[in-house]
């Protein structure tokens, strides 16, 4: 079976600076894979390469066995890749129901209809409602997004990505900035993601990584530094030195 995601020798240089160098990563179907690394390790660049925001300087990207190295952002979404952002990228003026309806309508091919009303298509609206309810946003789906508590906005980030029905979901620090009392909602939702969705988690928070991931890759200075199971990584002295040790100081 093809891996859900595979990169071969992926690299990105900005001038002389190598943000990513020779990253070869393979994420199995249905995996809960975490990508960790200290600040400035190139995690954000890597995500931007995967999603097509930046073109790579070297290497290739394969999604479910298909070469998507030069596919457009929308092309990758159509092929089943969705992402969330570390800092919320939502539609502040829209409501959650409108927000996820957008993605669902787009996926169903009805997003460009200009002569029917938003919400008139029950195929879209029922799915949106079910998704929001599952993501604990049921009570707030008709409030303007900018008025939602931060934790709920983080949930909407994930719901919006899930509305694209991804095969591969890239989660960029899903719990970042969430106040303690709302944290559980987010962690529970991440844990409850459907099993058939492959998840690549980009994360700083070790507690979340160790509880969630079944496999961990460590990125240091743009290159893959180590890879293994949770036990292997957590006991690897080199990883401790570059990352966990540093983190422990904070």
């Amino acid at each position: 079976m093809n891996p859900a995601l595979r990169t071969i020798g992926l690299g990105k240089s900005f001038g002389g600076f190598k943000a990513n160098a020779d990253v070869s990563l393979s994420v199995k179907q249905g995996a809960r894979h975490a990508l960790i690394g200290p600040n400035g390790a190139g995690k954000t660049t890597f995500i931007n390469l995967l999603t097509g925001v930046l073109p790579p300087s070297a290497g290739t990207i394969w999604l479910n066995g298909e070469d998507v190295t030069y596919a457009s952002q929308q092309g990758r979404v159509r092929r089943g890749m969705a992402r969330t952002y570390q800092i919320n990228q939502l539609f502040a003026e829209l409501t959650p129901i409108e927000t996820v309806s957008l993605a669902i309508a787009e996926r169903q091919g009805t997003g460009a209809r200009f002569w029917s009303r938003v919400g008139a298509d029950s195929a879209v609206i029922d799915e949106a409602e079910a998704l929001l309810t599952r993501m604990q946003l049921g009570a707030m789906m008709t409030r303007r997004t900018s008025t939602l508590p931060y934790g709920k906005q983080r949930l909407l980030e994930i719901a919006l990505a899930m509305a694209c029905k991804p095969k591969l979901l890239l989660l960029d620090e899903p719990a970042a900035g969430v106040p303690e009392d709302e944290r559980h909602d987010v962690l529970d939702s991440v844990a409850a993601l459907p099993e058939d969705v492959t998840v690549l988690l980009i994360e700083h928070d070790m507690e979340l990584v160790f509880s969630f991931a079944d496999r961990i890759s460590v990125l240091v200075q743009g290159a893959l530094f180590a890879e293994g199971t949770v036990d292997e990584i957590s006991s690897d002295p080199r990883v401790k030195a570059v990352y966990l040790g540093e983190d422990a100081h904070v």
Binding site: T51, Q73, Q74, V77, R78, A82, R83, Y85, Q89, L90, F91, A92, E93, L94, E98, T99, S101, L102, A103, A105, E106, R107, T110, G111, A112, R113, F114, W115, S116, R117, V118, D121, V124, L160, A161, A163, C164
Partner: peptide, 26 residues
């Protein structure tokens, strides 16, 4: 009619956050 359609909503979304609109396939 057009501004209340799915097309109209997607245009508003583009104004609001073009980056995200592109990542959900618009």
């Amino acid at each position: 009619r057009i501004v209340h359609s799915p097309f109209g909503l997607s245009v508003k979304a583009l104004k609001d956050n073009r980056l995200r609109a592109a990542t959900i396939g618009i």
